[in-house]
Amino acid sequence: MSHLFGHDQPLSAQGGGVKPPSFVGSFDPRVRVVAACLFAVMVVSLQQIEFALGAFVIAIATMLLTDLPLRLTLKRMAAMDGFIIVMLVMLPFTTPGTPMFSMLGADASKEGLLHAVLIGIRANAVVLMMLSLLSGLTPVTLGHTLYRLRCPAALVHLMMFTVRYISVLHDEYHRLRMAMKLRGFKARNTFHTYRSFGYLFGMLLVRSLERAERVLEAMKCRGFSGHFPMIDQLVFRRRDAILGATFFVMIAALILMDRIYVLAY
């Protein structure tokens, strides 16, 4: 996981331009961020399974237009499903309605099942679209994009620092863990294990704070005045506008059809 935010990340927002970007990757990050947020908000408000499926198909189509590793993306989506599976299995039994079948003395209702399926499809559609549009961005590009989209500068700087140090501290964690392993530590269900993990994390905190003090001093040495220049050339071209418009029309059409369907029946 730490490779994701590894040291080999390009430091500029443009960077890593060795291989040509994929179709989705060639658009302005700002359009992608806004589109993903819009998609999420719209899809969550869909009420009909048919149109939620439509949104899911759009998400799959977008995923196929990226150059992200297919297996990894699907694996992440499946990991998300693991979170909700319990809730989805329980929903048919807890929603009142027409009974379909009963299991262990509890009736499963049709309404509950449909609701569970709807939630599952909406969740998968949003996560897939988000992974397709955004996870191709480097964290640094994401920071610049959020800055250009008028997010508070303090928040963006905080995020850039966090991204920068996650891999460093993850390595530090592995070093400490290796030292424990060399001394014969094995994680079990014992109080000793929990205490050792507590000491491990406490040490990680202490070291990270000392690192932070060194970082701030080094920054002051280099004339840090409380402002980071954000150097990038994000350009909004015509094709970005076209993508944004197409996306908006597509989603709006889904929503509209969804609402009409609800009213008509």
């Binding site: 620092f161 966090t162 140090y165 990270s208 704070l209 970082v215 701030l216």
Partner: peptide, 8 residues
């Protein structure tokens, strides 16, 4: 910087 490192 300190908050960012702690957040990490």
């Amino acid at each position: 910087p300190a908050t960012g490192v702690l957040s990490a």
